[in-house]
Amino acid sequence: MTDIVVLGSTNMDLVAYVEKAPQRGETVTGREFRTIPGGKGANQAIAAARAGGAVSMIGAVGNDAFGSRLRSCLETSGVDTGHLRTTEGPSGTAHIVVDDEGGNAIVVVPGANGTVDHLLPGDESLIASAGSLLLQLEIPLAAVVAGARAARAHGVRTILTPAPARPLPPDLLDATDLLLPNEHEAAALTGLTDPRQAATALLERVPEVVVTLGAAGSLYAARGAEPLTVPAPRVTAVDSTGAGDTFAGALAVALGEGRPVRAALEWAAAAASLSVQRPGASASMPHRSEIEARYAS
């Protein structure tokens, strides 16, 4: 039984660590460089699997060394890769600069992810078998819409992280149950910088919204209910890359287990707070025992 299906991207993250990120035209010296498996789709899949979910991944990697490593990382983390395609050419890459305050700037080169523009035979039946479908926007929009429609047709909860932020077509929003933007994405979607106002505006399009607020926690809004703000644990961030994906994966697991909304958001926040204290995206994602210990404390 698959609890969660993730339809999305796989990237190799090429990460440079610097004291301060360069401005346009500026060159700075970094202190460290790492290659770390990532991509918003793969990150959410790994986060959900480590949090205790039974997870399957739909996406693509290239037939290069990065592709082999990406597939291996997913499988080692407990993600089923039977629907992960291998295509001719390079895998996706993300070029990331992380500064000493834990902030980051990212350039994504899609590679194999650009070939995921439709569902293959068997993908819809896999989605139909799940409790939740996790979606992001690092693969062609046609596939995201097709996945959301398949989930809606089979009564599967769809959780959409609208990143990278872009205008969302009505047919995608119509098939989305829970929209999960960060505060910047919420502002980009609505033109409203206040997260509460943005969440209220987004409720005209989807039934539930969670706006993640970084160190300030998260804001939950649903039609016919009062907004709910849940704080995040206080920690010192080392690298925020992948924190939002950690939150998404853990939240899908918590909701799938039937936890009340507040408890699910607190549990997801505990997972994200652990991830920001470690470098990298997938490499920083905590296991269920760690999340439970942080949540209990």
Rank of each mutant, 00 (worst) to 15 (best):
240 S>G: 05
192 L>M: 15
240 S>C: 13
253 V>H: 00
249 G>L: 06
262 R>E: 07
230 V>R: 11
232 A>T: 09
214 G>Y: 08
202 L>R: 07
203 L>C: 07
248 A>P: 13
193 T>H: 14
252 A>G: 13
215 A>K: 11
205 R>V: 02
240 S>A: 15
269 A>Y: 08
248 A>C: 10
272 A>N: 06
189 L>M: 12
257 E>P: 00
232 A>F: 05
210 V>Y: 01
237 A>E: 07
217 G>M: 14
266 E>K: 00
237 A>R: 14
195 P>L: 08
230 V>W: 10
266 E>G: 02
222 A>I: 09
235 V>S: 11
245 D>L: 03
245 D>W: 03
230 V>T: 14
212 T>S: 13
272 A>L: 09
213 L>E: 07
205 R>P: 10
270 A>F: 08
242 G>V: 04
243 A>Y: 10
209 V>W: 01
267 W>P: 00
241 T>I: 07
235 V>M: 12
230 V>S: 10
192 L>T: 12
189 L>V: 05
254 A>C: 06
203 L>D: 04
195 P>M: 10
220 Y>D: 03
260 P>N: 14
197 Q>W: 02
186 A>D: 05
250 A>W: 06
262 R>K: 15
223 R>Q: 15
230 V>A: 04
256 G>D: 00
253 V>Q: 04
211 V>H: 01
198 A>V: 14
216 A>S: 13
195 P>V: 08
192 L>F: 12
203 L>K: 08
248 A>V: 06
218 S>V: 12
212 T>D: 09
211 V>L: 02
230 V>C: 09
208 E>Q: 15
270 A>G: 11
185 E>V: 05
260 P>L: 12
220 Y>V: 03
198 A>R: 08
245 D>S: 06
272 A>G: 13
243 A>P: 00
265 L>W: 07
190 T>P: 02
197 Q>N: 10
243 A>H: 09
219 L>E: 13
247 F>D: 09
271 A>Q: 05
214 G>R: 03
248 A>R: 00
224 G>F: 13
242 G>I: 06
